[in-house]
């Protein structure tokens, strides 16, 4: 059965190696594409946008995801299983469906603007989509279900006896929250935060459909060089940089998981 393992490796490796190969072999063999990419203003701008949006959306998603995970962790097992459906259904929903829905919800003639128009009895047309707001809303909707699962796992793992002990010793709920719940959920929080940050670094669909022209991320730049500029060497060089960034952040996650296993 080891041929199956070999076959898997032969399916997985060539495309990745091909990106490295294309990035350094124009021909001739050189690192020129990297030099040009790293010094270009467009790349630097996109890189900082990527880092800013990935950080903002992961932190926001962690905050919302933590609230949901905490709520789920405090339900009796049976009700938790039912409520999980509210997290799992969005988890399995296509990102395109979400992007479509948020264009309708946030658009100039969208649901939010209509409600605001009705409340203030005036025509409100806030720009909520095709800009940073729309992008963050879309990213958050995508990332929250992903971060709920690891955080929930570490919250559920906390021994109930600790809560009971804290409570008997006279600690009030806020104190129990900050001295028991938060510290003991940190492993799940870090794992969840790192994995959604890594996911959001490579975001493509959400910035393309909900972000504005100035909110495009590295993945969109790769697509731009591949499709519009037809410069595959630069597209590959940007991909390798993106891959490197992901590795830097995914490595601690992998090490941490291995230690746990």
């Amino acid at each position: 059965m080891s041929p199956a393992v070999l076959a898997v490796i032969f399916i997985v490796l060539p495309p990745l190696l091909y990106v490295f190969y294309t990035s350094v072999y124009g021909p001739p063999l050189s690192l020129a594409a990297y030099g040009e990419v790293l010094t270009s203003k467009l790349f630097r701008q996109t890189l900082s946008t990527t880092l800013i949006i990935a950080s903002l959306s992961s932190l926001l998603s962690l905050l919302l995801g933590f609230v949901v995970a905490l709520h789920l962790a405090r339900q009796p097992a049976r009700r938790r299983a039912i409520l999980m459906l509210l997290v799992l259904l969005p988890f399995w929903t296509s990102i395109l469906v979400k992007c479509f829905a948020f264009t309708v919800i946030l658009g100039r003639e969208g649901i939010i603007n209509n409600i605001l128009s009705w409340i203030f009895d005036a025509k409100v047309q806030l720009p909520l989509v095709l800009n940073l707001v729309g992008l963050l809303v879309g990213m958050t909707s995508f990332l929250v279900p992903l971060v709920v699962l690891p955080v929930l796992a570490s919250l559920v793992a906390i021994d109930e006896a600790i809560y009971r002990a804290a409570s008997i010793m006279g600690a009030k709920p806020p104190r129990i929250f900050w001295t028991v719940t938060v510290p003991m959920s940190l492993p799940g929080v870090f794992a969840g935060l790192l994995s959604i940050f890594v996911m959001s670094l490579g975001a493509f669909v959400v910035p393309a459909l909900l972000g504005g022209p100035q909110d495009q991320m590295l993945s969109n730049l790769v697509d731009f060089y591949n499709r519009e500029v037809l410069d595959w060497q630069k597209a590959s060089a940007i991909s390798v940089v993106l891959f490197g960034m992901v590795l830097v952040f995914a490595a601690p996650l992998a090490l941490w998981r291995r230690r746990k296993v």
Binding site: V5, V8, I9, V12, L13, P14, P15, L16, L17, Y18, V19, T22, V198, L201, G202, F204, L218, S219, V222, D223, N226, W232, A235, S236, S239, V240, L242, F243, V246, A250, A254, R258
Partner: peptide
Amino acid sequence: GLVTSMIMSPSIVPIIVIGLGLYLYFSY
């Protein structure tokens, strides 16, 4: 461990990188 991480890599590598790699490789 190395084989496992190679097999698992497509779940960590940004899909855009895989997409471009497949496009270049399949063009070849």
